[in-house]
Design a protein around this nucleic acid. Structure first.
Lengths: 107, 107
DNA sequence: GTATATACCTCGCCTGTCAAGGTATATTTG
DNA sequence: CAAATATACCTTGACAGGCGAGGTATATAC
């Protein structure tokens, strides 16, 4: 059983930020690790992932740079910024609140 | 502090269904009671509410009928169907799963 | 040589939210 | 009594995020 995209909507960005808290990473890897973490219950779709990267970079919550692979496909790495860390803390608080509210309403 | 609509998105329908489990009700009342339950932290916007009613009725999860007010504005009452009760149980399971998944990813 | 894995990306559709606008009745307040 | 407020319903059109479908390129395995 999977997770509905309307429920996940709005969580894509914090999920990516959370991942980057553990260190720089790149799209393909992030996607794979998210699947592993959730035992394949949740998969970030590529189109969703890359559009989220664009939004996050635009908002200066992450920055990106090309890896120096001498072999294999090129990778674009992402790094979380201080602003990103701050935004993540906010997201988390919001999530805790939202959880409580929804739990109250879904009695 | 309020709740972001992207986080609540997808929960509108189960919230309405949950409310109707306690008995038939009408739009204005449902909206007011949701605000009260959450201490005004969450307010279903009218446009959102009424479009959700349409979807729910279309999907036969609720049915509607006009109240017989002899005074004051007319009211359209909604009643949850068996199909709606079943859908609600599913929604709830989904929510429990989604919560666990998101909590896993938002470490 | 064909399939699979790695790695990136964009376009355009779909769907749910909601600001803004509208209608009508009843009560309260200055 | 006029105006404001509360009750009660509704629709339209814009907007934003998710994602199916499509595309590019490199490396390995069979």
């Amino acid at each position: 059983m999977s997770i509905a995209s309307d429920v996940i909507r709005g969580h894509t960005e914090p999920i990516i930020l959370s991942h980057l808290l553990e260190g720089d990473s790149y799209g393909y890897q992030i996607n794979k690790e998210i699947m592993e973490k959730t035992n394949n219950l949740y998969e970030l779709k590529e189109a969703t992932l890359y559009t989220a990267f664009r939004r996050l970079e635009q908002a200066q919550l992450i920055i990106s740079y090309w890896g120096d692979q001498e072999v294999g496909a090129r990778r674009r790495y992402y790094s979380i910024t201080d602003k990103g860390r701050e935004a993540y803390r906010e997201y988390k608080k919001d999530w805790e609140n939202a959880k409580a509210i929804i739990d109250t309403l879904l009695k």
